[in-house]
Design a binder for these strands. Structure first.
Length: 746
DNA sequence: CCAGCGCTAACGGGGTGAAC
DNA sequence: GTTCACCCCGTTAGCGCTGG
């Protein structure tokens, strides 16, 4: 049984002395010099082609310079270059992941996305590295066409024709040729064909390529490459050829309109294929030496020409000065030149009546020139779309990677990504977080891409996202929006996957019915968009926010307790439970409570039930109950304590903007003493919590409960997700006013 | 049937040196 | 001194590839 023949026909002259996975760190680093750009440019302009004996630079050397240019000018400088990056395979991976060139690679390699620089020689670098990788890859150096011919010539047996995947008639025709097939030669032609395309595209000098001009035609490496091998390039190639070239020129010359009909008539008349019709037509017209004018006129009439025109054509076939072919190629050259000029195709290479060029994604060509000559547009190859999935290890700037772009302008129409189902009351807001009394429910289409997924999990997550977006927006997302999302993930996360393949796979789910929607719940939200750099940073901020809110809440509770007691003139032992287990969390509140209780009752611990009355400050001082029993000294001390309690009550009332009881007038001197005492206990920083924040420091925009269900598309809560990162330069206090208002109305 | 180029085997001319 | 085998080297025919 015939096995796939993977014999390589790579001759020494084109062989590379390193593979795609060879680590070239030392070589590359030695080539990185301050004048790398000039060096790369100089080397490019001296590229060796198929001309024997000239001293151009071989592609394998040029590639090393291109790699040095890549790491010097294209690779972002703020990323660490790992040793494993110094290979052709890795660099191609980076170029494929973030392709800033207009070209399209046929084979995509799995690589991390980096913000590459669009350096001045990026396109040159891209083409050289893609080409070099291709020459070293499994896709180059063998082909079924070569294998089949070679096997036949060596053994005299034909390999199974039904397994042949290309033009079988063409192969059969080649079997009949008696010559020896040199696979090495064919592959060399293939090699120089690709290099010549690159040289044309980049407008490099062709001094090291064999190219001769004769009979209005240009004989270059393109004309030497077998037709079967021409679509096999590292990049997308397009061919534009003149439709029915010679009949078109005859039409133009003799003012008739047959064109394609000529070949059609011959095909019908003789029952032959189009390619054979072409040969027959030219065979006859080239036979001026052997055939009489009458014979040729008869033939032309059978093609569909009128007698008058047929007669005029024989003037060309029987021209003693110039052969018929040159009459045609003169037109051919003019037509090609016009086509190239009109479409401004500087990078195109001529192949007789056609031009070949590396595809740059620009399609609207002027395919008809000089009114009558029309050109065909044919893509010789298309990208091979294969799935791949892996994780890269590049450093990510943020702890959480959102699957959906945060910037609304990424989408043509605004997309709702998140929807909050109910609105609980807020407890408070600090450090960019907002906490709620209870958990609230929400639906989100987003997910964290900075987590480890298997390929299947990842696809399922994306399907859920598509479904949820459809549910939230009441419409299916478009193909473009899907591509934007996939590109966003590829760009910002460590997940390496084929955007082309995944996109193509997911397209069929765009219009699928909505799946079960997952409802999540959470008791906090974020008020800012800027991302955290690490997970611990998020947790620290989250905990800090919780702490600040709890502290404020504790202090407010104390203030309120004191205030109401004072208002009701029932000032006795204060009982207040604080949130927070950690010693430092509510040290200030506990100290203050202890101090107040001491001032009010004279005890540092809660007195026994029976002494309750005697321990109330107001009972004894304000109402002067039993005051006569006290000594003068005791009276003075009691009055002093009243002043101190008054001070605290005033301070806390101002702090939380409570309505101040009229008779309270703080003594500034005593107040200073009290504050100094507390400062000694808890420190300067903590004391600040007792004072209202400067109004200017408060952020102008503060989201409120109305943000939730009113205008969904503009609400900040529908743009960001929990944990969606945020960063604030300076810690700030967020006062409690809003919370206080909520408490009142609740 | 025409054109081009590249490659290779075959051919043929000229020089050389051994054998007669 | 003549002859002939042999080598070197340049030319050429034939076949490969392309285009119509």
């Amino acid at each position: 049984m015939y096995k796939a023949n993977k014999r390589l026909y790579i001759s020494n002259s084109i062989r590379f002395d390193y593979s795609n996975t060879c680590n070239l760190k030392y070589t590359i680093q030695n080539l990185i010099t301050p004048d790398i750009k000039e060096n790369f440019n100089k080397t490019l302009n001296n590229i060796q082609g198929d001309k024997y004996g000239t001293k151009g630079i071989h592609i394998k050397e040029l590639t090393k310079v291109a790699l040095a240019y890549f790491f010097s000018e294209v690779f972002p400088e703020n990323y660490h270059i790992k040793d494993s990056y110094y290979t052709l395979e890795a660099v191609k991976g980076f170029l494929d992941a973030n392709n800033l060139s207009p070209y399209t690679a046929i084979h995509e390699v799995c690589g991390a996305w980096f913000p590459l620089h669009d350096a001045s020689l990026f396109n040159e670098c891209w083409l050289i590295i893609q080409t070099a990788w291709f020459f070293n890859s499994e896709h180059f150096g063998h082909h079924q066409y070569i294998d089949y011919l070679n096997y036949y010539k060596e053994t005299g047996e034909k390999l199974p024709i039904d397994l042949y995947r290309y033009d079988k008639a063409y192969l059969e025709k080649k079997y009949n040729d008696k010559s020896k097939v040199n696979g090495f030669k064919l592959v060399e032609q293939w090699h120089y064909y690709i290099l010549y395309l690159v040289v044309c595209e980049l407008e490099l000098p062709k001094t090291h390529f064999k190219s001769t001009y004769k009979g209005y035609r240009d004989y270059n490496p393109l004309t030497k490459c077998p037709r079967q091998l021409r679509p096999l390039t590292p990049f997308k190639v397009v061919e534009c050829d003149i439709k029915s070239a010679f009949p078109t020129f005859l039409d133009y010359l003799f003012n008739c309109n047959l064109k394609d009909e000529v070949y059609n008539n011959l095909m019908r008349w003789h029952g032959i294929k189009r390619s054979d019709a072409k040969i027959l037509f030219n065979k006859k017209l080239n036979s001026g030496k052997y055939l009489s004018k009458i014979e040729i006129i008869d033939f032309l009439i059978s093609c569909g020409y009128s007698k008058r025109v047929a007669n005029q054509i024989t003037k060309l076939t029987h021209d003693s000065n110039t052969i018929f072919l040159y009459h045609m190629t003169e037109f051919e050259e003019a037509a090609i030149n016009d086509f190239v000029r009109e479409n401004n195709m500087v990078g195109a290479g001529r192949l007789h009546d056609a031009v070949l060029f590396i595809d740059k994604g620009i399609k609207p060509f002027n395919l008809k020139i000089d009114n009558d000559i029309s050109f065909g547009y044919k893509e010789l190859n298309r990208p091979v779309i294969k799935p791949f999935f892996a994780y890269s290890s590049k450093h990510l700037p943020y702890a959480r990677v959102s699957a959906l772009p945060t910037n609304q302008s990424e989408f043509t129409k605004p997309l709702i990504k998140r929807y909050v189902l109910n609105k609980p009351n807020a407890i408070g807001e600090a450090n960019g977080f907002k906490f709620y009394k209870s958990k609230y429910d929400y639906i989100t289409a987003d997910f964290d891409c900075n987590k480890a997924y298997t390929y299947n999990m990842f696809i399922e997550r994306l399907k859920t996202t598509i479904s949820t977006l459809k549910y939230l927006n009441n419409r299916s997302i478009t193909k473009q929006e899907l591509t934007r999302i996939l590109n966003h993930i590829r760009r910002n996360s460590n997940i390496c996957f084929s955007v082309r393949h995944t996109g193509r796979f997911l397209v069929k789910y765009l219009n699928a019915p909505v799946q079960d929607i997952e409802i999540k719940s959470c008791d906090f939200a974020l008020t800012e968009l800027k991302p955290f750099k690490t997970k611990i940073e998020f947790l620290n901020a989250y905990n800090e926010a919780k702490k600040q809110i709890n502290q404020n809440r504790n202090l407010y509770k104390l203030a309120e307790l004191l205030h109401t007691s004072y208002t009701n003139k029932r000032l006795s032992w204060l009982v207040c439970e604080f949130i927070g287990k950690h010693e430092t969390t509510n040290k200030l509140e506990r100290l203050l409570l202890g101090r107040l209780n001491y001032l009010i009752t004279g005890y540092s611990r809660k007195p026994r039930q029976k002494n309750k009355l005697s321990c109330t400050l107001f009972n004894r001082v304000l109402y002067k109950e039993g005051a006569s029993k006290l000594s003068k000294k005791e009276c003075k001390q009691l009055k002093d304590r009243v002043v101190r309690v008054k001070f605290w009550t005033h301070l806390l009332s101002v702090r939380f903007e409570l309505e101040i009881v009229p008779e309270i007038k703080p003594n500034k001197q005593i107040g200073k003493q009290e504050l100094n005492w507390l400062k000694k206990q808890v420190g300067e920083k903590e004391i600040k919590r007792l004072h209202l924040v400067n109004k200017d420091e408060v952020k102008p925009y503060t989201p409120n409960v109305n943000d939730f269900c009113t205008d969904m598309s503009n609400s900040i809560f529908n743009q960001i997700d929990d944990e969606e990162a945020y960063y604030k330069g300076e810690q700030f206090w967020y006062e409690y006013k809003r919370f206080h208002e909520k408490q009142k109305t609740a």
